[in-house]
Design a protein around this nucleic acid. Structure first.
Length: 275
DNA sequence: AAACAGGCCTAAA
DNA sequence: TTTAGGCCTGTT
């Protein structure tokens, strides 16, 4: 069976390996040929890069409707990198993480995924999320096989904690359900929050059981398009304590602190695994 | 084997 | 307003 694909030239930062494995998303996996296969917005795709040419499954219409925004291609990361290099360590982190882009993910998927992420390693988060999708997501035919969409909030809200035991996500199951109910019952309107202020979004997200400052910041950055949201996880806390004595002024990043965070996160994590 | 993992909640000062 | 302990499960 033949599948269409759309190829375009990209002269800005775009490194699939870094984009998909920097911890912002959990549904993309590397193939042996270096391409990545994943699902977003209920569409499966294979993404590959050769030189400055990017190829994504689907038509140009799919690209225009979904992938362009998903990969945040309206933003020049090369220019942002210049602005974020406010000191030596930041410049080091940025050079190391060059090629990263912030994905604009589905808000509910981001919320649910980062609730699951708490106190877990990335491989385990991916495992839990994949089991969740395989069990409760709509099937999507792709390259002769079947992938699954991320389960909707409505579908999730119809489940019980017992239904979620096969995920083996432990105490996070009740958080996932409480979030699903908040969203499906309209108490939390994620799309609407994306159009409002960052502080309102933070406030609303934190009313969900199991969502604190860190998870809320991830949802805002990766799902709602608040590029100034700055998730403070253990790695960021480490980096800030080691390099800045806890004194780190986010206002220097001109509304892009979240992107700075992602370079810092990538770099600080690599410092550990590479020596 | 004990500690920790991209936290959060509650209780107690 | 900060801190300790518990929480599911897996890995090192």
């Amino acid at each position: 069976m033949s599948e269409s694909a759309f190829t375009f030239r990209c002269d800005d930062d775009f490194e699939p390996e870094k984009i998909f494995s920097c911890g912002q998303c959990f549904r993309w996996n590397a193939s042996e040929d270096g391409s990545f296969v994943g699902v977003a917005f209920s569409r499966a795709a294979r993404v590959s890069k050769r030189g400055d040419e990017i190829t994504i499954s689907g038509t140009e219409e799919d690209y225009a409707a979904v992938w362009r925004d998903y990969f945040d291609l309206g933003r020049r990361y090369d220019e942002i990198r210049e602005r974020l290099g406010v000191d030596e360590y930041m410049r080091e982190a940025i050079e190391d993480g060059r090629g990263i882009r912030i994905l604009r993910q589905e808000p509910w998927e981001a919320l649910c995924s980062f609730i699951i992420s708490q106190c877990n390693h990335i491989p385990r988060i991916k495992g839990i999320v994949e089991r969740f999708c395989a069990l409760f997501g709509e099937p999507i035919a792709f390259e002769g096989g079947v992938l699954h969409a991320f389960p909707t909030a409505e579908k999730t809200a119809s489940l019980t904690e017992e239904d979620l035991t096969p995920l083996r996500c432990g105490y996070r199951a009740k958080y996932v359900l409480s979030a699903a109910r908040a969203v499906s019952e309209g108490r939390i309107a994620l799309e609407e929050l994306a159009r409002g202020s960052q502080s309102d979004a933070l406030c609303a997200l934190k009313t969900i059981d199991g969502v604190g400052d860190k998870v809320a910041a991830c949802v805002m950055l990766f799902g709602l398009g608040f590029y100034d949201a700055f998730p403070r996880d253990v790695w960021i806390k480490r980096a800030l304590a080691e390099r800045y004595g806890g004194d780190f002024d986010l206002s220097r990043f001109g509304g892009c602190a979240g992107i700075a965070q992602q370079y810092l996160f990538w770099h600080r994590r690599r410092e550990n695994t590479e020596d």
